[in-house]
Design a protein around this nucleic acid. Sequence first.
DNA 1: TTGTAAGCGTTATCAA
DNA 2: TTGATAACGCTTACAA
Lengths: 341, 341
Amino acid sequence: MPDVTITHIARAAGVSIKTVSRVLNRETGVGAETRARVEAVIGQLGYRPNVSARSLAGARSYLIGLAFQKVATAYGLEFQFGAMAACRRAGYHLVVEQVGDEDDGAAAPLSRLFADIRVDGVILAPPAADDPAVLDDLEAAGLPYARVAPDGAFGRSPYAGMDDHRAAFEMTRLLWGHGHRRIAFIGGPDIHSSARRRREGWAAALAALGGEARPEWLERGMFLSHSGFEAADRLLDLAEPPTAIFAANDEMAFGALAAAAKRGLSVPRDLSVAGFDDTYGARSSWPPLTTVRQPVREMAEAAVDLLIAGFGAVASEDAPRAKLLEFALVERASVGPPPAR
Amino acid sequence: MPDVTITHIARAAGVSIKTVSRVLNRETGVGAETRARVEAVIGQLGYRPNVSARSLAGARSYLIGLAFQKVATAYGLEFQFGAMAACRRAGYHLVVEQVGDEDDGAAAPLSRLFADIRVDGVILAPPAADDPAVLDDLEAAGLPYARVAPDGAFGRSPYAGMDDHRAAFEMTRLLWGHGHRRIAFIGGPDIHSSARRRREGWAAALAALGGEARPEWLERGMFLSHSGFEAADRLLDLAEPPTAIFAANDEMAFGALAAAAKRGLSVPRDLSVAGFDDTYGARSSWPPLTTVRQPVREMAEAAVDLLIAGFGAVASEDAPRAKLLEFALVERASVGPPPAR
DNA sequence: TTGTAAGCGTTATCAA
DNA sequence: TTGATAACGCTTACAA
């Protein structure tokens, strides 16, 4: 058990270490029988190649970097689980670093953060995925990267995403279909491009359906529930308040739910509320939240897959560059018809 | 910029690579002047030692493993941020793996998951921190580990924790101080030892204060909000329902809040609700949640610090073994006096 | 199809 | 207090 090396395998299989290496790396030019024999011995001895040695000798470290902003939401972990699964499948490991926290030394460029462990590539989540400075830094360092839900510059890297615009469009249409004509939107911070696209989807749907998107029905939140609470509060203070509130993420929708509860409003009887993300809490809020299921985990998996696929490709066009995952409208109890009046 | 190595530093400083290595590793026996010169060159050239080479040649990989169950809560990320910060300070990197998900290859023993990257040690969060099989495996593999909030076996490893029992005791006393005499508790899963200690703290406080802990006032949830919802529902159906509900974590408290809202009960006028953890949502639920602030991030940091400190120690008693962090009672609006009757 | 030999950038051993 | 030089376990030429 203690440290089986490539030499042991070679000896046990009666071949040279180079042949073992070839088998390990799925290189061509190994006899089928030899390959089988080597693989058997590997399995038997439970051999796992030493990543440090591989990384030192070769061009790959089998390490992928994931950088986080210092915001602890369930979304972030969900994202990470997807990335971990994809890494494991491909024999990679995931190294995480925190980025963008000035008072913690984490403000260093990503390329430096990951320099001493020589990761093979980096996965970027929003909002870092849309930060040109981050992309420039990575490219200058020659570090491949893949992005999740980027805003633009789609040609710059492989990416996985979903159609936020269409999802928000569909959710707005669902609200409209229930009979709502005063549909407010609580947007997110501008740096989150997906937040922007969701807002545009809402506006586009209203335009398409012949509804109004009055300026006072558009609020901007911070993707945290208290900002949803405050935004909903302002909305409900309006002379002509909305009958439905569509928040750009679930957390803000929870805030809206709380704002309604504070006023003694019953959801969905007096007010309908819809979210976006389908986080864990969406099942168990009261009432359970109608929302858009975002395939966070799958997007992260796809991004890692694309990144790794790109390693093999000769810096050209033969690797797939993008993958769009399907969202789903999840109808629970927080949306109903508007109050009769 | 591209790949400054120890050789470059040695040449530039006019010393041998071994001397540079000594400076790097803070070994003794280097002239003060020589050391200063080498350090200057290192700073100037922005040199960072190659982790793979270090790991291959030496006994350390400067990698620390963190294993996660597949439950995406904000708690997990908060934990990770603490671990990342401590790692960075000490020049380590954090490698994350998922553990315990059968259908994903993640059921392999931890020592195997981390075998090929040869992490120097592992950080364990509950409930893995209390799983004897996990500890046995790590010890058999000779992998040092530190735990956060372990249940027992305190001598087996360094650990960081808090006094869950006392925290629950204090919260119960706070409820009692508001005048509540029927205080229910929604516990967590038994495998979470902290959940058990919180329940015991509740029971102990009631005993100390001369109150009752009726069996029907003790519910068991799953640390997820829907189980808090259901438990509260049962509690409120009782012939003699509690006037205060204390949940073993915030998520379940949110569920209790929702259950109250469903029945048209106003919190805290008709019912008081307290949580445990002080997660993000606690600030922004309606009403904002009175809860126990658990120093999750600090505990993770302390665990990493203890783990790393242990590396130097000669497998003996000279390294600190435990650190207890302070909790705080956070009073917000979800607790008030019981309804007059 | 297979093998030999030379690194990769560190740390460890031993000598100066 | 310093410095040659040999590992560490693998991959990458280059041969056979």
